[in-house]
Design a protein around this nucleic acid. Structure first.
Lengths: 228, 228
DNA sequence: ATTTTTACACTGACCAGTCAGTTCAAAAGA
DNA sequence: TCTTTTGAACTGACTGGTCAGTGTAAAAAT
């Protein structure tokens, strides 16, 4: 099957043409490069969220980042590598945020339901801050046959694992029903927040985060069916 | 879409080669074109679900459908028109299914929560039957700046409106809390089912639909936090 | 002095859409 | 019954354009 046309019949195994290799990660003053990469991330995220990966050209990314095309290839081996690192970066932020809110609730003596609620909020805050990244993530998550599929699976698992951990702890401690299916419920909660937030951003952007959070809290705590 | 397999009957790739032939032509004219369009729908859905719209070539679609490239353009004005008609068809099936399950519950004297539960099931059945279409739909739904965006918005609204109607009726009749935010809750429920089902298909495909449905019912009815 | 960025020309592959020609079953004609 | 015509359906080579990635020399930043 011919998949990515990125790597053609030529050689160019190296890819990155950075002199001296890219081995050094400890930056002793690579602030400038950092800033360039950041600009490229932002440009790529917004464009790919709008149009999708394949429909977005490297020229467009460079232009929106206010950078020459060559700079893209000086900083990233290829278009897909840029995208993959971008995914890693974004999901890392989300995972860290979820973890932090869960931990904070636990330290504050909150219940597991409180922790879930805090994570719902953290999810909303994340989507509020990085709506384009979220769009892009959702669009790619369930695809198959893409180059970065395995990367995406790993990252997804890291994020979902945080939710699963809280659910499992809750079940073990008796606070949550033993009947619940931990992985499936985690996915469902994830989807609840995700879709609600995307709809919020897409169709009712004027509403406040607190407002949206309150609506989801109600659903989470099963206060929909009960009157009042 | 691999949906209505009404006719289909094998593949019926003419095969007759005899000139001046007298063949049996059981079906009159017109049917052939239908069958070709159906094959193109199916090929396009599976490919676009895997790779995305832009990464999927018309040549690939034609090849998977077992048809020449020109035939694609004989049957559809363009690649995006093919895609748009495909979306219309698929979302139409979903909306009809949701509506039917809600109506059926109402006729049977079920409560609104029962109706919601029935719709959750209908959603799961749909995704179980058309997983590729669902992937594709999710991937495109929140994009901006795409040709078929407005079509997608309209279709989304039709589907969500069915859920909203049930929620609103429930609030009006006092069965559901007045506090709930109808549009947001509808979106959240939609997302809950969607993401849970996609995860089911992607990561635990062996599980039964009943199993998944039971887990979501529990969440819907707020029996997560309470023991019992 | 070294790293990073720029500007721009260039290549090779790839792809949406076109069009002149082919097939064939049913209708018209003999 | 047999032959001819018709036209919808289909075909696939071809075109015009696009885009990822390369190469280089010089400028800018550190």
């Amino acid at each position: 099957m011919e998949s990515t046309k990125a790597m053609d019949g030529g050689n160019a195994v190296d890819g990155s043409r950075a002199p001296g290799g890219s081995g050094r990660s400890a930056d002793g003053g690579g602030t400038r490069r950092q800033a360039t990469r950041q600009k490229l991330y932002e440009a790529a995220v917004s464009l790919i969220a709008e149009q999708g990966f394949s429909a977005t050209t490297v020229d467009e990314i460079a232009e929106r980042a206010g950078v020459a095309k060559g700079t893209v290839y000086y900083n990233f081996a290829s278009k897909s590598v840029l995208f993959e690192e971008l995914l890693r970066h974004g999901v890392g932020l989300l995972t860290a945020s979820l973890r932090e809110s869960a931990d904070k609730t636990a330290q504050g003596g909150g219940s597991k339901v409180d922790a879930l609620d805090a994570m719902v909020r953290a999810g909303l805050v994340f989507i509020d801050r990085y709506p384009a990244f979220t769009q892009l993530y959702v669009a790619e998550l369930w695809r198959t046959n893409r180059a970065w599929q395995s990367t995406l699976m790993v990252l997804r698992q890291e994020a979902v694992a945080v939710v699963e951990r809280v659910l499992r702890d809750g079940v073990d401690s008796g606070e949550l029903s033993e009947e619940i299916d931990v992985p499936l419920t985690a996915a469902a909660l994830f989807g609840m927040v995700l879709v609600a937030a995307l709809d919020w951003k897409a169709f009712q952007p004027a509403r406040s985060l607190d407002d949206v959070h309150a609506a989801l809290s109600r659903l989470l705590q099963g206060r929909v069916a009960g009157r009042r």
